[in-house]
Amino acid sequence: MTMTINDSTYTTETAKTKRRLYMELENCIGCRSCLAACTQCGGHEQRNRNYVYDVNPLVNRQTMPLMCLHCVDPACARSCPAQAIQIHETGAVLSALVEKCIGCQNCTIACPYGIPKFDEEENLMYKCDLCIDRTKDDIPPMCASVCPSNTLQWLTEEEIAEKQNRHDLDNEKWVTSMPYLEGETNVKVNLPGILQGTVKLF
C-alpha cells in the first residue's frame, strides 16, 4: 500500500519535472535551424546529427524534421558488439563512445529510423545524443532551443498531457509512439493533423 502511494507521488513528481523532446511535425517550415544548431552543440565536432525531409518534394513544400527518437529499448545499442552505445540515466541513447566503437556499422543497419551516421575516415559512428551535456541539466537540446516554429519543444510530461487534452482529435493523430513508430520512445512525436486547419501564430 505504502509502495503504491510512494510510486504515485513519484510519478506525479517526475511528470512535473521530467522534460522530453516533443515534436509537432506539422509546424516545420524547413528552415533547417535545427541542423545548424546541432553542429554547434558541444561534443558534436561541428557536424549535425539530425535531418529535415521534404514530405512530397515534387508536389508541395511541407517539410518534417527527423532525429533520434531515443527508443526505450534501442535497437542500435542491442546490435552493438562493442557496447559502445550507452543509455544515459535520463533515457537518452548516447552517441558511440569513441574508444569503444569498432566501426562495424551494425547500428546503422539496426536503427529503424536510419539515424546513426558513420565516418569512414575516423572509423566512428556518431548520432544524436539529445545534447546530453545540456539535457542532463534540463537545458533544452540545441535543436529545440532554436526552432522558430515550435516544431521541436522541450516539455514536461504534464505539459504534453495538457496539449493532448486541448487537442482531443479522436482521429489517432495525437502524440504517439505507437503504432506509427517501432517501439516506445523517449521523444514524443505528434502526427500532422493536430491543428486541423487552424491558423497558427508563431
Partner: peptide
C-alpha cells in the same frame, strides 16, 4: 530510404 519511409509513415504520403 529508411528515413524517408518514416516520414511517409508520419505524413501518409509515400515520401
Amino acid at each position: 530510404c529508411r528515413r524517408k519511409y518514416r516520414i511517409a509513415r508520419f505524413s501518409g504520403s509515400p515520401t
